[in-house]
Write a protein that binds this DNA or RNA. Structure first.
Lengths: 196, 196, 196, 196
DNA sequence: AATGAATGAGTCTTCATTCAT
DNA sequence: AATGAATGAAGACTCATTCAT
């Protein structure tokens, strides 16, 4: 059993991995369980040994990707004292995560408006954003950020990163300048220029 | 027989209308043609008398909604001399269209990343945004707007309206203040404050 | 109204003609009434004005082609005193009819084993062959032809022509020599060589 | 459990068997998959577990019957030194195969002109006749058979057997004498009487 | 734990036929 | 005579899920 962890991928993980790829490429209803099984190198029945249903697989993938983004947020805001530096770091962190994991990004986009994701899971995922809201709240109180509805501010800044990702996926490449333009756009939008 | 045309809805229109509603509520693959037919009060075969396939219906709906938004853009920018006034008017125009037509909005969101929409139709829809790009271009040249990638600027500002719509749909209601905050957020993002 | 008969083709005939072409090319179940109507330049309903059903059209076409072949048999045996001359003339007559009307031939082939043709019509068509059986009967009685089951002799000689047609349709072209070889093959098969 | 293999018919075989019967009786387009499934005692889905499509089933049946006939040809020409004896043996072999397997015969007749059979399969089936062509070729070279187009000779003699089968199926019964008449008919047609 | 044969409800689509105009 | 919109039963095929091994 020793050394088995090296390069060992459990069947369960293989199923999740291939499901993600397939669904991203073909869409949910063009990703039959039989196909997922074949790609993962397991029998159809095996999938049902690990998961209750197709929906369960999709929900699990969705939540796990959202968690990854949550981790990126936490990680990239660590040890950043300067407010702008922190803002840029988090923005770039999310941006980089998505463009280096385009499959995960597409999967999220495809599912975020779908009735397949349970509302319970939606709620869980919201929490992964809470660190951002926390720091925004403080900046508003310190009069560094515009006094704006907190949820609105969070969504606007996050979606601006998404816009950037979208543009990048469309264009294939994006200059550092353009990335900077987008972040500065958001920064101007949220900051009290006279105090910062 | 007179005045019969008032309030007369053709079967074709009924089909489109009910397809839109159903797909928005249930998603494409949970909106069988049989169901659409039933809701529209026609036989399944009748649908195929007017449309070649399910995909054709979806494409037609998609393009027509996008066209409506295009018309709103044109309409709401008419007779607006002041740059900011025009920007606000267009922003509010789009926002209002979506929140008064939430079904159309949801339909769009569900389809915009779908492979069902032909690339030809995607191209057609892009054109409906051209008025915006035109005015942005001029404002950049006049140094009133930040010198930013045009496509980026267009996408950021449009998506900020989408964010607002999304928040409103989530919350059920939105104060005029919050709407204003979002528009001002974008305005700060695109303008050269010293020249405006 | 005068001169109208020149080149005037009734809608009824157009329907029959286009149905024949379409069914030959695509097969019965890939020849929808709507398509026949379109090719014939009439409305679907118009077809039902002239014919009770699709099956009726097919039966009518089938019988009329079989009648044409019957006419060819009668025509090509006229004024032929010599037995062999008559045999060759009829054989060539049928052969030529089929290769100059390949659509009719294919139509027949496609339908002859089909349950669509009523047994009544099958019986009617059998009669078109009676002239052949008559002359064979006489030749057998005169000891010029082998004493063979009459029906068998009729079917063998007719089917040998069909074989020739089939070979010709396969090859695209057939030398006069080969045609002659086939007819002589049948002739040797039916004749009492010592008496002829 | 022993001897269980005796009389065990796999679902796959049951499907093929019932499809053959049904298609022969009703024709292809009146043999829905649902009906085949019911007769075979399986679910519709099961058919698609074993076959890709209805066309695939039909092709497989067609080729396998043609192969049977090919085997009969090989078998019945074995150890036949005398030319006429061999000719009669093969003719009777084919005749007997068809009349003892009338369903297979009808199936073949119905399909041989159909576009459903792929040209690849048509080519494969042609090969099953090659033994016949080989022996004819030799007999022609030895001046025992008439110098006739080889393909023509092959088609004429084969189709004469078919004619016999057809007559038998029509009449219900056929005397040994009539069978002999038909074979002698062909024999006279192909042989150089002076050399044989 | 793992398999994959088997299921059958459900999908989109076709098409002969009808009927009001 | 002629139209073609409207019908809905029926067809081929898919696929999530089950279950005996």
């Amino acid at each position: 059993m020793y050394r088995m962890n090296v390069q060992f991928i459990s069947k369960r993980d293989k199923i999740l991995r291939e499901a993600t790829k397939l669904i991203t490429k073909k869409g949910i209803s063009d990703s039959p369980m039989s196909q997922i099984a074949k790609k993962a190198g397991v029998a159809v029945g095996t999938i049902y040994h690990y998961f209750k249903s197709k929906e369960e697989i999709i929900n699990e993938i969705y939540v796990s990707i959202r968690k990854n983004v949550g981790d990126v947020i936490i990680e990239s805001s660590k040890n950043k004292v300067d407010l702008k530096e922190a803002f840029k770091s988090v923005s770039l962190g999310i941006y980089n995560y998505y463009i280096t994991n385009p499959i995960e990004y597409s999967f999220l986009k495809q599912l975020e408006h779908s009735p397949i994701i349970t509302s319970e899971n939606h709620a869980v995922c919201e929490l992964y954003f809470s660190p951002i809201f926390g720091s925004y709240q403080k900046a508003i109180e310190a009069n560094l950020f515009i006094n704006m509805d907190l949820m609105l501010m969070g969504m606007l800044t996050y979606n601006n990163i998404i816009t950037l990702v979208e543009l990048r996926l469309k264009s294939g490449e994006l200059s550092a300048e353009i990335v900077d333009q987008a972040i500065e756009f958001s920064w101007r939008g949220i900051t009290n220029q006279k105090n910062i």
